[in-house]
Design a protein around this nucleic acid. Structure first.
Lengths: 337, 337
DNA sequence: CGCAAGAGTCGAAGCGCTTCGATTCTGCTC
DNA sequence: GAGCAGAATCGAAGCGCTTCGACTCTTGCG
């Protein structure tokens, strides 16, 4: 193994000079920088990560905790993880993957052993057992999602409340007067995962503001449940003409079920989805949708963490504004004769 | 920060004794072990990962390289990654996440800097640029998938050739005489990702053995492409009664398209999918399928790596036998009058 | 012309752990 | 009772790096 002393000897300087060339923490003459750089390349030198971590008290590794549970959409998690890794690399950091399953002890372990410098925690719940722990850790963290008590923590997410509102804005603009939200499985609400509740809040508030008739239904993420939900909905609200779907896996089945029930989309019924853009774009009928900006969230989360690691202050809450893209699943409401 | 000397002082022993208690590499009296254990708990001691890595030349971290490209099914990758993390933890290791994108330089970096002890590389292609590199690294690796030249490497995967055969066995047993394989997008074949080709080989070989009429079609992973494919297939092979689908995202669209084309499944046409079990189980019509054992592959990959890290010999090739589960999408072929 | 400030470099200490003898003590064997 | 094996423990070296203080030269300035 090539070590820093080998490089130093080869370049005719001291080890500390090599270190300073690498870190840029002290000024080095152009000439020395060049010679050292050449030696590094020639010898194929790579600093030993452990030694570096020990001496500098920085591992240059971030922990990413991903959720495993039902009711969350896997491709979104993946997209997010990839974005985190990519952005972290751009800041010269690597990413250690932890699963939700490891729980609090996992966080304690990687932080306590100085394996990681900072943490990103996904799928935060309203009363998340990890929150008090994170407050005690000496390492910065960024949460994806907002717990009930977020003061003192750094959180980021799509502004789901605004997303719910934007959907209603759009439907109301188109003249719809009776709208429904088909949401996540009820277990997601029960464990109080904030985002589902917040979407619903925004949806209801906006509907009230416009004076619309509105209805709210959790739904399991299976085609069968989707079909049943559509039947119930049409039965209970015969004059329903606008639907918001916030449940990725069943977006397509829902649309399909409405059609089979004799509702043309968008002629008789408008549908807005809250889901990743690709899903909306590649559906059989391209869907008007509010995007889940997984990539943006991942990138911003890492950037926030880097700021904190640099000792800078960052905003406690970052809410990304929703972006609604109109496609072929929504149309103006025309009163039947 | 609590360090080993603190624990040693607290327990009234030397630091080396604490170390040996932790590693078990030398015998320690019951009494000492107990006292040290208590001090560790009381002080909340966690060994510093970097210091440990430096002194022991082991980081207890594995690298996992995940693919990003089109044509691979995200949930399978995720399932696999989770299985790797879970199994690694069981062996007291953590997992560093790398993306394909980082390429060879990424592997070189994490191995060269001793950030990781070993590597798991997913989505290996027939002539993969990373193979020669892996051979030169001083760290053990396990590949998911088989490159063209696998001698000297440790590879593991589902036995896709056998999977292709098993599907044909099943259809032939049911009396089908004309069968088709709907495969991955042609780009997957073009970049010579082994698994697609091997499934096709197994399929064709078995069909030949049974004397069946057979046909082979790559297909893009979009519903539109699926529909078009079905039309082509029925046009070119009017007497087709058995289909194998090896392309996760369009399993459902394919079945749907056959139905719309007037073929009842399984009455007129039997369909076997090669896909994760959940996908097959939760389809509208539960599908007869050969499972992609992502979890098993992940677990085995880590176990192989652990063996190698312990200096043990392991088999170069591990081919997991396919498991076909009959569900509702296949039925005996009945000759029409 | 003298001195302060800054650029450029070096040496040595130290980060927290593991590991390799060395040492002591017990219990056997011949 | 000498000699030896093994159990239990300690001390010290060293893993490869960063960083701090000290040192030497230049420069610029009053």
């Amino acid at each position: 193994m090539v070590k820093i002393t080998d490089v130093a000897r080869h370049a005719g300087v001291s080890p500390s000079t090599v270190s300073y060339v690498l870190s840029g923490k002290r000024s080095i003459s152009e000439e020395t920088r060049r010679r050292v750089g050449e030696s590094i390349r020639e010898l194929g030198y790579r600093p030993h990560a452990g030694a570096r971590a020990l001496a500098s008290n920085r591992s240059n590794v971030l922990a990413l905790v991903i959720p495993l549970r039902s009711g969350i959409h896997v491709p979104v998690v993946m997209q997010f993880a990839v974005s985190v890794v990519t952005t972290a690399r751009r800041h010269d950091h690597d990413v250690l993957l932890l699963t939700q399953e490891e729980g609090e002890e996992g966080l304690r372990r990687v932080a306590g052993s100085s394996l990681v410098d900072a943490l990103i925690v996904m799928d935060v719940q309203m009363r998340d057992a990890r929150i008090p722990l994170l407050r005690t850790l000496d390492r910065p963290a960024v949460l994806i999602g907002f717990p009930a008590e977020s003061a003192g923590l750094t959180c980021i997410d799509l502004d789901f409340k605004a997303a719910g509102e934007v959907c209603v804005d759009h439907l109301a603009d188109l003249g719809h007067r009776c709208v429904g939200l088909i949401g996540s499985p009820s277990e997601v609400y029960e464990r109080e995962t904030g985002f589902a509740q917040r979407t619903a809040d925004g949806f209801m508030a906006a509907a009230r503001r416009y004076g619309l008739t509105s209805t709210l239904h959790p739904c399991e993420a299976t085609p069968d449940a989707a079909r049943a939900m559509v039947a119930t909905l049409l039965d209970e609200h015969p004059d329903l003409t606008g639907v918001v779907v916030h449940n990725e896996p069943i977006v397509a089945p829902i649309v399909d079920a409405f059609r089979r029930a004799g509702r043309r989309v968008p002629d008789d019924l408008s549908v807005v989805a809250i889901c990743p853009d690709e899903l909306a774009e590649h559906a059989e009928l391209p869907l008007t949708s509010v995007a889940i900006p997984a990539e943006e969230v991942g990138k911003r989360a890492v950037e926030l963490l880097m700021e904190k690691l640099d000792g800078h202050e960052v905003p406690e809450a970052t809410l990304l504004p929703p972006r609604l893209t109109q496609r072929a699943s929504t149309a103006p409401h025309v009163n039947k004769v």
